[in-house]
């Protein structure tokens, strides 16, 4: 009960802080969105035109479904990049500004603090990402099938999954601050995986399949694309709810595992960082 109250209080504080900063620096927020849109368009175009066969690339860009598939992948990738970055670069930054030690002085503990911060930050990211997806998809003439219930469930599960993974790397960053730099590679890998993740990946032997399922973004990305791009139409051409899709069950299992590993490791590492005295070191 106390933890829940603390979680809500921290969320409230974070929402107010975020709102104040967005409002106070509105110009930066707005230009950020415009630049984001522009960058994404350039990335999409660059991605297609850099294909080995340029003609094929042009045809692909002209195929709105395929383009939408990649655009969505880009956005999911950005989301994953942001959530994990909040733990890695975020912790490094907070250690540098001294805020991390003040968070540790909160009676609710670091896990509750980071959970609340992540939820608020992700809601904001999802809002901006949704805007971005909408504008970019419209720009390339694509279409998204928006079914609210599966989308909300999938976004929540994807977020929990990434959160667990984020807690794991965040825990490592608490003790070994240099890990923060190395995790950029991991974040980039997840970003790429979100773009390219397809069901065909999972049919290339048990080892590849197991590895893909173990990564926190594969199933989330496949499921979200299945709902938003394919409109939950299976390969047989029949409607099949995403809740019956095998990747959905993998996603649920992955959520449980990553959350357990992430939070447990974060707590262990928090304890260890207090022993090593690395909380305020950057």
């Amino acid at each position: 009960m106390n933890t829940m109250l603390g979680f809500l209080l921290i969320m409230k504080a974070e929402i107010i802080r975020g709102w104040i900063i967005t409002r106070r620096y509105w110009f930066r927020t707005l230009t950020g969105l415009i630049i984001g849109y522009g960058m994404l368009m350039i990335l999409i175009a660059g991605f297609f035109y850099s294909q080995p066969a340029i003609e094929k690339g042009i045809n692909q860009l002209d195929d709105p479904t395929r383009a939408t598939n990649y655009i969505l992948g880009f956005i999911i990738g950005l989301f994953a990049f942001g959530v994990i970055g909040m733990f890695t670069q975020g912790i490094q930054g907070m250690a540098q500004t001294g805020v991390l030690e003040q968070l540790c002085m909160s009676p609710y503990g670091l896990v509750t603090n980071f959970l609340a911060r992540a939820v608020v930050a992700s809601v904001t990211t999802i809002f901006y990402s949704a805007l971005m997806v909408y504008f970019v998809v419209i720009s390339v003439g694509g279409k998204l099938y928006f079914d609210p219930l599966p989308v909300i469930v999938l976004l929540t599960l994807s977020f929990i999954n990434l959160l667990g993974f984020g807690f794991m790397v965040g825990g490592l960053v608490l003790v070994f601050k240099q890990v923060g730099q190395l995790t950029i590679i991991v974040r980039m890998a997840l970003f790429a995986l979100a773009i390219f993740a397809r069901e065909e990946f999972l049919q290339q032997g048990w080892l590849v399949s197991a590895l893909m399922h173990a990564l926190p973004i594969t199933d989330a990305s496949i499921c979200l694309k299945y709902v938003l791009v394919k409109g939950q139409i299976s390969e047989t051409g029949q409607f099949m709810s995403v809740f019956l899709h095998p990747c959905f069950y993998w996603l649920c299992a992955s959520c449980l595992i990553w959350t357990f590993i992430g939070i447990s490791l974060f707590k262990i590492m928090e304890n260890y960082s207090r022993y090593k005295g690395t909380l305020g070191i950057y």
Partner: peptide, 29 residues
């Protein structure tokens, strides 16, 4: 316990002093 460690770094710079106190107050219940 209240701690001031390298004090000038503790506060959140884009916020005002009053907003900082509201923020940290919530964190401390």
């Amino acid at each position: 316990i209240g701690v001031v460690l390298e004090g000038t770094r503790t506060s959140i710079w884009p916020l005002t002093p009053l907003e900082n106190l509201y923020y940290y107050g919530n964190l401390r219940n």
